[in-house]
Computed example of a mutant assay.
Amino acid sequence: MAKILNVQNLKKSYNSGSKKLTVLQDINFSVEEKESFAIVGPSGSGKTTLLGLCAGLDQSESGTIELCGSNLSSLSEDQRAILRNEKVGFVFQNFQLLPTLTALENVAVPLELRGEKNAMKISMELLEKVGLSDRHDHYPSQLSGGEQQRVALARAFSNKPSILFADEPTGNLDEETGKKVIELLLNLNKESGTTLVIVTHDVELARKTQRILKLKGGKILEMQSVNNG
């Protein structure tokens, strides 16, 4: 299997007043194509920072990240944006839907940015897959949290990403709704053959992936393979 994400000797610090705060150091791991991979750890362990670096949303201080065959540090901001638009999907804890657009229009945004002629048709099919075709004309404020996250899932898969990054996808949902969203995410992921990288506090969710990377204090504590039968 080819590596879709390869992280070597990664370090990230922030200036906090007069101090330098190291958030991540000595981070080395890789993720293979079509693998499902979880990043877990306590609050403040650097999980979300690591996800942002891997997705090219932020830049590291030192070390290299190769994503979909490109070395992120050698790309300009515009080139990284193009790579994300073409190859990467995102699901966030707070849904990140555009409040002035309907569910259908939210899903269609990445497709329209790419100049897809059948954006609305494809978006409607995706809403059908997440069980929301009957709510296509509703705005985010008219949808429950679980419904908003399902719209976000449909949008994340709309550009047929090679890799999907999910940051605490069930963080704002109750347990039952969270379980449904996870089932949907894993099913869509399997169906489309996407690589999945999830940041989560949820141990049960992490155990549904193939490998778990545990972070503590900005360092890798352990890497664990999961046997899902």
Rank of each mutant, 00 (worst) to 15 (best):
K190Q: 10
G46S: 11
T22R: 06
K20N: 15
E128F: 02
A81W: 05
L21G: 12
K19R: 15
L127Y: 08
I65Q: 09
L164H: 04
L213M: 06
C68R: 08
A2D: 14
L132G: 05
S43G: 04
Y14T: 02
E168Q: 03
Q25G: 12
S60N: 14
P169G: 11
L184R: 03
E125T: 04
L10Q: 06
R135T: 05
G52L: 13
L111M: 04
I82A: 13
Y14E: 14
K121T: 01
L143Q: 12
E61C: 14
G131M: 03
E77C: 10
L153V: 04
R211I: 01
S141A: 10
R207K: 14
H136R: 11
F29I: 03
P42A: 10
R211L: 07
E66S: 11
D167S: 11
I4C: 08
A166D: 11
R155W: 01
S70N: 14
E125D: 15
Q96H: 14
V197K: 03
N228W: 02
G217M: 06
E175R: 07
V31Y: 06
V107D: 13
R155V: 02
E222M: 02
M124C: 09
E147F: 07
K87Y: 07
T48E: 14
I27N: 12
L173Q: 09
E105P: 03
N187S: 13
I220K: 08
L57G: 15
L51S: 08
S158L: 02
E176H: 05
A103H: 10
E86Y: 04
